[in-house]
Design a protein around this nucleic acid. Structure first.
Lengths: 247, 247
DNA sequence: CGCCAACTTGATGGCTGTCAAGTCAGGTGG
DNA sequence: CCACCTGACTTGACAGCCATCAAGTTGGCG
């Protein structure tokens, strides 16, 4: 039996737990597979489970044996230094994969924490490897997903290495907006799942700086912000901010 | 015929161009393969070529069809913003792979530039995929290499997001030292292949800041620096610097 | 209603960027 | 062989962005 859906969402979604029915299959691992191949992937994705807000999906140092596809919800991944400093390495939403970092050493190298009640599909990695030896499309798509993660990380390095505070936040908002759009949500009206501190950690800023930048964007009419509720009023304005020369 | 080795190195090295003879095979893609599998990989690595200092191995936007293993030499990869800002995303040395970013979109997303006369082995990607469908060990190792790249990027994000200038530079030097060690070179005495500006771009700092940090490390007896020649005098000191709390 | 976490806003300071001048090393040409 | 040139590097003075510290506000929840 499929696991229950959390809180608000209704039975229709509960039924569609197989990859073949999942409305995220164009964003997720199944992309490009035939009907028959999809059925085989369904067998592979054995475990679907719920992760409550605040719970760890996995922890740094823990043994790696599966990657995870997000069916619904929102996660962050972070790395902790011995001295307590935290770096958020990413925010993940429905259709995205978690755990790729663990392949390297067979142990996870970061923590994955749900920022809202979420549902994930566990994909045993050794089985994914053997199936992708048989299904060319799956193999190639998996490689693309890993590569995309590398490219994404380069983007974050760019952001952290060369951009000023307001440019970073503008880039962050535009990125979120674009990913919400790809999932059928409004590009201009959404709720942040993370705190100012988590945004700051991701962007290499302190929470006060994030807060001030939000206020400034609002004063200048680029966005309307009320706590975690964001409305983007001027996409072009944000893009201009993002590309502004340093000084 | 194998390509000529550049400058200083001698004939013995020239002969060993096949993966099966390459002294980097424990660091590179062949790791863990049997003799017979190695022979097959040799067939795959069709092209070996030289890239002179300053030349591009590939450019952002260029078509992707192969990944590259570095036989000898030193590279940097970087991303350029429209407004001219540069972010160096990595420095690569012998035995490391270049071009993984291109799998995602079938186009390279960064530039790869030789920082000294180098030699690379081109590995056609579609052939690598089909061979890794047959050789389990190769498949798994390739996945590990991609994952390691993701983990490395997280480390850089940590560095850029949470560390101060001197911590970043200490971490950078220790990382270089460790990679030289793995290749049989001195951990404590080496030449930098990149300029202060390139180090700065990688670390999210200006070249003057890098220069000042080098000078400070020298004053404090952690290193001896003379232009590009670095001698590490106090590894523990650098490690302590790296882990120092912010303020 | 009170509590607490999350957030906002202000005042101040410091790290690092910016600007500028000078030094060093290597290569070229006379 | 040496003067010259150029790119890379070093060092100093100053400034600005963002961190830090602090106080107050908001919203959610028991």
């Amino acid at each position: 039996m499929p696991p229950e859906k959390s809180t608000q969402e209704i039975t229709l979604a509960v039924i569609q737990t197989a990859c073949s029915n999942c409305n995220l299959r164009e964003l997720c691992l199944p992309l490009g597979l035939s009907e028959e191949e999809l059925d085989r992937l369904d067998d592979l994705v054995s475990t679907r489970r719920r992760v409550k807000r605040g719970e760890y999906l996995y922890r740094a140092g823990g043994e790696f044996d599966a990657i995870y596809a997000i069916r619904s919800g929102f996660f962050k991944t972070d790395v902790l230094l011995e001295d307590g400093r935290e770096q958020v390495t990413g925010f993940q939403m429905a259709g995205e994969l978690l755990g790729l970092d663990g392949i390297s050493t067979e142990h996870h190298t970061c923590n994955a924490i749900a920022l809202e009640d979420s549902e994930i599909c566990a994909i045993p990695f050794s089985q994914l490897e053997s199936m992708s030896r048989e299904i060319h499309t799956l193999q190639h798509h998996f490689h693309k997903v890993m590569s995309r993660e590398i490219v994404r990380d380069h983007g974050v390095m760019m952001l952290l290495g060369t951009m000023r505070a307001e440019e970073r936040l503008a880039a962050f908002l535009l990125n979120l907006s674009q990913r919400f759009t790809a999932r059928g949500y409004s590009h201009a009206d959404f709720f942040l799942r993370m705190t100012r501190e988590e945004i700051g950690s991701y962007l290499g800023l302190k929470l006060e700086t994030v807060s001030r930048a939000f206020s400034r964007f609002q004063e200048e009419g680029h966005i309307a912000v009320q706590q975690k509720h964001i409305r983007i009023l001027n996409v072009a304005g944000l893009k201009a901010l993002m590309n502004h020369q340093p000084i």
